[in-house]
Structures are given as C-alpha cells and as structure tokens.
Amino acid sequence: MMHKFRMACPDSVAETLELLAGMEGEIAYLGGGTDLVPQMQDGRRQPDWVVDLSQIPELACIRFDGERIRLGSTATFTQIAGSALIEEQGRCLAQAAGQVGSVQIRNRATLGGNIASASPAGDSLPVLLALDAKLTVLGPAGERRISFERFQIEPGEGLRRGELIAGIDFAAGSRGHTGDGRHVPADKSDFSAGGRHPIRVSAFGKIGSRQSVTIAKLNMAAFLEMEPGEGIVVKSRLALGALGRHPFRLRNVEEEMRGRRLDDSLIVDVTKRLQEVVDGAIPGRYSQTYKRQAIRGLAADVFGDLQQQVSVEKASSSNGPDQGGGKEEQEIGC
C-alpha cells in the first residue's frame, strides 16, 4: 500500500506551473508511472505531491520545426518507435525506443521519465548523447535550455525542486534531408562538397540477459556524419551506457574516427578501443570479462548497421535526393 499523497492532474503546462505555487513538500511528476508507481508502492519514494503529466496534449507531441526534431517529454516509447519522422531523422532513438521493456511498458513509459529516472542503463540516454540533444526544462523560476550532456553530469544542473522536463530536441537529419523533400541545410563548416548532402546515419544497440524485455547490460549509440563522395567521416558522436553511473561520450574514439572511411579496419580499431574503455571503466569487476566480450558483438551490430545504412544512402543519393515518397511523416499531438 502506498503512503498518502496529494495528486494534481493538470490539463496544460500553464496550469501545472500555477499549481506549483501552492504545493508544499516534495513534488514528483508522473509520466507513465513505470518507475515511480512501483517505487511508491514499496515505499522507496514518498512524495507529498504527485503531479500527473500524462494527459497534457502539448507535452505529448513529436514534430519537425524545419530545423530541429522536437519531442514533448511525455511522448511514449511506443509513439517514438512508431514515428516515421524519428525513424528518418534520428534512427537510433527509434531503435532504442523499440527495445525498451515490453509492449505494455512502451505503451506507458515516456522519454521524459527515462531521462529523469537517470538509470545507468536507461536506453534513451546514450542516444541523447549521440544526437547531442537539448532539453527544455520548466519550473518556478521559468524556462532553461540545457544540453542533455551537461544536465546529466554537471552538479546543480539536474532537475531542481518543482522543475519538469518539457521537451527534448535535436538537429534534424540523420540523412541530410527531410522526409517531405524539404532540404535541411547542413552546417557550412562541416560540409562543402559541391552542394551534395552529407550522409548522416545513427544506430543503437543493446545487450541484455535475454533478447527482449531486458535491462541493458551494455548499450551504445553512434552518430556519424560523412562527406558523400569518398565516405570520409567528418563528425561522429559515440556513447556507451550501463558501464558507470551514467552513460558517457567517447571523445577520444570519435577523434580517431575523423578523416577515416567507415570500413572494416575502422571497426576493428574502434572495437579495440571500446574494449579498453570497458577495462578502464570496470577494472576487476566480475562483469568485466563478460562485458569486454559482449562489447565486440555490440560494436559489430551497431557499426554493421551504420555501414548498411551508408550503402543504402549512397545508392539513393546517386539517384538524386529522396523525395520522401512512400512513408508518411506523421506528426503526433501538436
């Protein structure tokens, strides 16, 4: 049986912020409840107020604003995994969403809840690092924007009392153009290959104790941007999870990938470096032997997936830009 608490069920963000003023004691926001409800049930969490965000339409949207992909914090993993927009523009996020828990969990669990829970194995977290995502946080003191990476590691930058995660956004374009045929302008400094789009691909992989419905023992997300001619890596972001208190970027490895082609020798080198990272992160831990083997399989999956995407991209870009035919770009909620 849960402790007694008071509950608020606002219909809008404005109403939520108004209600805050009258709340004393500990406030817990409620998304899907897949973490918070069992924690309250066994007494691990005992907030004075529970504020349900699950029926606020403006927090549940998934959309493209012409530049960035924007998700409301209560978008569920079912919605994210099923979104053609996310599949097209941030594929690693769709892949991670589709591997969270079971159907029942994905139907409730939200991206905002995954971020706020900050489990070392949270599947969206390495993805948000790989996509260099930003958060919009709202609270009694107004709005602040912060990169997910700083939010995660910098003391004092996490959620403060009464603050909620309103939205998550990242630069559009795992593919350099949008599904509806609109051109996503590339960052000039990254790309100057005579008007052709850079190739941007991303992938997520996870290893757990069984194939589905499993908490990650290791998870990894990778984003690569390549110039379209020779397929040289111009920018990359690589993040590993379930190895420490929170997932982290591998900036040294990213640096080593720059200027190289995404071929098997690159993958061999990256895999070696990843094993060293595992050794350094959990030296002597009983799980070290397992994880340093497991990471080879994980690297093969993730980089194999990236290679596959790049070859599809190359084939389609030589036929001119994809006009996005076939897939529907649904925008959810807003």
Binding site: T34, Q104, R108
Partner: peptide, 26 residues
Amino acid sequence: GEGECGACTVLVDNLAVNSCLVLAHQ
C-alpha cells in the same frame, strides 16, 4: 506488482498496459 509478469494487463484506449503501474486517476 512491478511490470515484469503481465498478469495485470488490461487495455487503455485499446493499448495493452500493466495496470499495476498505472495510478487509477491516470
């Protein structure tokens, strides 16, 4: 009682959910 077994599965707006993880007011 913690989302692992599915014995409590019901549909909410035709989507399967674990009713042990949903507060009734949701």
